[in-house]
Design a binder for these strands. Sequence first.
RNA 1: GGCCCCAUCGUCUAGGCAGGCCUAGGACACCGGGUUUUCAACCCGGCAACAGGGGUUCGAAUCCCCUUGGGGCUACCA
Length: 542
Amino acid sequence: MPENVVTRFAPSPTGYLHIGGARTALFNWLLARKTGGKFILRIEDTDLKRNTPTATQQVINDLRWLGINWDEGPEIDGPNGPYFQSRRREIYDKYAKQLLDQGRAYYCFETSQELEKLRKQAEAQKKGFVYQRPAVLPTEADVEKAKSEGKPVTVRFAMPDGTIVVNDLVRGAVSFNTAELGDFIIIKSDGFPTYNFACVVDDALMGVTHVIRGQEHLMNTPCQQALWQALGFGELPKYAHMSVTISESGGKLSKRERPQVLRKAIEARPDIYLEKLADVGKINKEQFKGFLAGENVPDVPAVEAMAKYLGVELPEINVIDFFKSGYIPEAMVNFIALLGWSTGEKKEIMPLDELIASFDITRLTKSNSLFDRGKLIAFNTEHIRMLPREKLLAHLKAYLKAVGSPVAQADDQLLLRLIKICEGARTLADIEHKCRFLFVADDHIEYDPKAIQKVLMKDNGLAMLKKVRDNLAAMQEFTEQEIEDMLRSLANQHNVGLGKVAQPLRVAITGSTVSPPIFDSVQLLGREQTLKRIDNTVRKFS
RNA sequence: GGCCCCAUCGUCUAGGCAGGCCUAGGACACCGGGUUUUCAACCCGGCAACAGGGGUUCGAAUCCCCUUGGGGCUACCA
């Protein structure tokens, strides 16, 4: 690619960055990094109703966590600012006026209700709705009149007649008949530009050369191309419409999925008090009703609180959900990159720099891909193994802090040791779950009833545990090696496998049958606490 | 309903544009076995696909058409 590549990611600040957005950002970023070009972050906040005040910061945090940095955008000034569309109003106005003056755009005064009616009529006739351009375009005087009558004033682009061909980098030539596209609104009645308009103006002004985005934008592209040309912006950017990521439950992976899962869970539980639930979510009755009806989606914290109360596992959709589930960014990025793209080589697991090196925009896949969590876990496992320890440590610390784990008390030295003894962990959550026992009080161990049944109540488990206790108490040193030697010889003495000796001990100190290797676990817990926990266990289950 | 996109193992995909090198390759999942102090990890082996129908051609997973299926868009949302 000879020219200077400029790509951008242009999210609308409606909440956390979700997987689909992350993928779009990633491919644009990958192309820029691969070609030595520039990657711009632009915030498309032209819809006052949808924007959330904290969303931009959330998106920024999520991108940074993934390791996707931008050359220009929020917090990184550059020559093309401002990077918030809400602060670029005069620019859009100027171009809208240009089109108006040239007769390539015109004013309209219909209300949403009126348009909705027309749309219904079209549907009833089994036709697509196309706005009918008036024979005589309204004048400025008409605008004044409409305003005084309290009518909404919007501006529509006068779509030229003919066929528009989109030369898509992944789909080839796709043609559209402009008669079916119709005149679309470019300036809303609140004075803000619509997406198609703002996007074109900004892409042109910011010198964007390549637009990689989801297939859901394919239908917008002829509109944007027509606008681009009417505005006299010259050479079009190259478009690449990626396949869409499909959720395991069906359609396009969407933020709405989490609320939906919750809603279903609520419907499946007629026994629970809805008022109590609304309380848990800290939302009022109206909001809660709306939510159940499938409309008003309450905030993320409300959804999470209610899900937690019901014990429902929500599918991870947002980047932050994966972070909270113990995934590491290196794995996420690697996995996401392979959704709708492939290197053509057999190797799939690779660090970021290799991803950049092998990125090739022409190798994007045409067909939609399903988000397969099983494969993500496999990638995460491999990346946890591969990543330099220092980096893994940083991820672990951030994770522990975010989920409020008691393991967060551990210092770096200890954490590194825990990482080491949890070799083969699939997620950071695995490490946390396995090592948690070290950080809870001796009398707060939660015993898994199944574990008690299986290893303590059977095969003289309790009796063996007592013997282990005596031997532990009698040891000179208390190193992993000594502990191992002792347990092995004990097993030998009784002519049983090590498991018969180790499992009762494991249950006694952790309450469960799962822990890091037993020798490390005991040594880390220390003799005093180990003995205490054994005593507690013996007393409790004798 | 209208417009548009897509179609290889359960899933992600290689191969398709330059048709024979494909008895269709890899990865994940799954199944079986091994290793083992638990879980996980690890090692070995196995199962498994060109949606269907017409063409074109000596020859089609690869090119064309139709059907079916999936997906997207259809807003004064992006």
